[in-house]
Design a protein around this nucleic acid. Structure first.
Length: 360
DNA sequence: CTTCTGACA
DNA sequence: TGTCAGTA
């Protein structure tokens, strides 16, 4: 079922695990449940093809929706049409919601009787109730988006005129510019500081990337002119509006200047020192971060906190230069070692990138 | 040094 | 799902 062409890159179990953020053990479990079937090397090592990775992404998305491994196996293996698959997933989501509503109702009944008995309700009771009634909708929606963004897609023949209409420059709400060009047969996209990528059509105004699970939808105004786009990635949807030609080139030139002249973001070092301090406390300030970065930071926080604990007091912070991707690179010395930190920010100064790694 | 299987928590 | 033993 999985395509494995000769030139396909094959990942070992550990590499695959690292890339997808799950453990080798988990990969084995999925395989045992018939969800994955990587090829084996002569040494009997598992080798994961890009097809396996795609399938794994789909499995992980379905799992986020709360489906059991056996349910996922059924969906993936049965010759379920797309419609059948969607109905199945919707059913799972709605069932979960129903169960949650029932839990909420039980809680309400409990609190009502407590109230009637004149016992008075505590703040904790009310908070429980609020949590039970409100919380999960956002989580469901996020899980659904992640699934929809990660599912396999089918390419269609793009319409020439449509490609031309989509081409142009756009700016996201945080000020980041993106350039879309038409080759006549397909679209290419370029985000500042990142390699260009191809966009494949799956619908007239909807395109997807093959290198990573992400899609673009283009929107039109009343006259039918393309006025904006939405980037769907990582469970998020980021809107951008068409902007003047040349904005991208200007931003690119500015980045190249920063790289050449080793110019850090204004106030970058102070910001970094503050961030490291906050990470040490396990309480980063998310206010000045884009939503995407926030979720990334939240995800890696436990690991970072542990690492900072090991490293001890911060000794010094030294700016090294600007990377090709626009990240300011700093070397941070600690009592027990050193780390490299990188940060990048949008034109409006919100933080949109942060990475850290230990260096020898 | 890494992966594999199987077992147990 | 983490971890351990005993191998290949």
């Amino acid at each position: 079922m999985d395509k494995t062409s000769p030139q396909d890159v094959l990942l070992t179990a550990a590499e695959c695990a690292a890339r997808t953020g799950i453990s080798v053990r988990t990969l084995r479990v999925y395989e045992a449940n018939g969800l994955l079937s990587p090829v084996r090397s002569q040494k009997n090592w598992r080798l994961y093809s890009s097809g396996d990775i795609a399938r794994l992404n789909e499995i992980l998305s379905l799992k986020q929706l709360g489906l059991s491994l056996s349910a996922i196996a059924e969906i993936l293996e049965g010759r379920m049409t797309d419609v059948g698959r969607l109905l199945d997933i919707q059913k799972t989501i709605l069932t979960a919601r129903q169960e949650q509503a029932e839990r909420g109702l039980r809680l309400v009944a409990q609190l009502q009787s407590k109230n009637l008995a004149g016992e008075g309700l505590s703040m904790g009771d009310l908070l429980d109730l609020a949590k039970e009634t409100k919380m999960n909708e956002a989580a469901d929606e996020y899980a659904w988006k992640r699934y929809d963004q990660a599912r396999p897609r089918t390419e269609i023949e793009p319409d020439r005129e449509n490609l031309q209409a989509c081409a142009g420059e756009y700016r996201f709400e945080d000020g980041i510019a993106i350039r879309i060009t038409s080759t006549g047969k397909a679209l290419r996209g370029e985000l500042l500081g990142q390699p260009e990528f191809d966009l494949f059509a799956e619908a007239p105004d909807r395109f997807f990337l093959k290198v990573t699970p992400a899609q673009f939808t283009f929107s039109r105004d009343a006259e039918g002119a393309v006025e904006g786009l939405v980037l769907h990635q990582g469970g998020f949807e980021m809107k951008a509006e068409r902007c003047a030609e040349g904005v991208f080139a200007t931003a690119k030139a500015k980045l190249e200047d920063r790289i050449r002249n080793k110019t850090p973001f204004a106030g970058g070092e102070q910001k970094l020192r503050r961030l490291i301090g906050e990470h040490r406390e396990g309480k980063p300030d998310y206010v000045e971060m884009t939503p995407v970065l926030k979720s990334l930071v939240e995800e890696q926080l436990p690991v970072v906190v542990k690492e900072l604990e090991r490293l001890g007091q911060m000794r010094s912070v030294e700016f090294r230069g600007v990377g090709v991707d626009g990240f300011d690179i700093y070397i941070v010395e600690f009592e027990n070692g050193r780390m490299e930190w990188g940060l990048s920010q949008c034109p409006d100064e919100t933080l949109n990138g942060l990475f850290m790694r230990p260096v020898p």
